[in-house]
Structure formats: structure tokens, C-alpha cells
């Protein structure tokens, strides 16, 4: 069995792959620190994550050297995984109706208050809960 292994796994420069993965991780953190537009940041960090995943699967998990059975196992699960998100998305995030939730009423009241009070209270809200105003999805 060990001889089979030796034949089926050609030598790979694993340390080089590891260095590439480290560079990718550093890039993700750098993208977060430097100022790029939010949507570009999301695109870049997800692209880096996909690149890292490909490095790990191709070389560390030896998929580059495996037979076509890898597609038989991985393709259906990939389809089902993406299908799950696609199936959930319309009701949760793309609906036409307005949700009725206490959190939303609270947010609306807070927004109305800060508009009424103008500058001072708005600044105070910003300094406390930075994230709320940062994203407006």
C-alpha cells in the first residue's frame, strides 16, 4: 500500500503552497485595513478565499492527482450547497414586503430621533455603534 502511495503522489513543493496561502491571508487582512470601496473589498476577500481553497484542495488534498471520481463526489454536493442558498435567498433577502419586527420599529424610532436632534445626537450614535451606519443593506 505504501508503495502505491509513493507512486500515486508526485512530489509537490508543499512549502511553496503554504507560503502562497500565507500571502493570501495577509492580502485579506491588508484589504480590510486599507481603504477600498466596500463592494470591491467583498469581491477581493472572497476571491482570495476561493484561491486559498483551490490551493488547499488541489495540492494539500491531492485532488490534482486524483481520478475523475472526484467530480462524481464533489459536483452534486456543490450543486446542492449553492441550491440551498439560492432557495433560501428570495424569502429572506429579496422579498417585496416589509417585515414587521420590533427591531425594525426600534431602528426607525432611533433614526427619527437622530434626524430630529440634528448633529449632536447623530454623532453620539455613530461613535457608539459604528457598524450600524456603516452598512446600509
Amino acid at each position: 500500500m505504501a508503495d502505491d502511495h509513493a507512486q500515486s503522489h508526485p512530489h509537490v513543493n508543499y512549502f511553496g503552497v503554504f507560503l502562497a496561502l500565507c500571502v493570501c491571508t495577509a492580502l485579506s487582512v491588508i484589504f480590510d485595513v486599507v481603504h477600498v470601496t466596500p463592494s470591491l473589498l467583498v469581491f477581493l476577500v472572497l476571491a482570495v478565499a476561493c484561491a486559498k481553497a483551490m490551493f488547499v484542495m488541489t495540492y494539500f488534498m491531492h485532488l490534482k492527482f486524483e481520478g475523475n471520481w472526484k467530480f462524481v463526489i464533489l459536483f452534486p454536493t456543490a450543486v446542492l450547497s449553492v441550491g440551498l442558498m439560492v432557495a433560501l435567498a428570495p424569502d429572506m433577502a429579496m422579498h417585496y414586503y416589509t417585515n414587521e419586527a420590533p427591531q425594525l420599529r426600534y431602528e426607525a424610532e432611533k433614526a427619527a430621533e437622530s434626524h430630529g436632534d440634528h448633529g449632536d445626537s447623530h454623532e453620539a450614535a455613530d461613535s457608539h455603534g459604528g457598524g450600524h451606519d456603516a452598512h446600509g443593506h
Binding site: 454536493t77 446542492l80 440551498l84 442558498m85 435567498a89
Partner: peptide, 26 residues
Amino acid sequence: IMFFTAFIGTYIVLYFGSPGWPTGYN
């Protein structure tokens, strides 16, 4: 893969479905 995609997928759709989702370090 499907096990973790269920969690991550749920997280993503809940994030987009919840305006005001907490994100700041504080």
C-alpha cells in the same frame, strides 16, 4: 460540505434579511 453550507447559507440570508445587523467592534 452541505452541513457547513447550511450554516453559512443561513447566516448569509439572515444577514441580508436583517437591516441593522450588528457589525461594529463595539
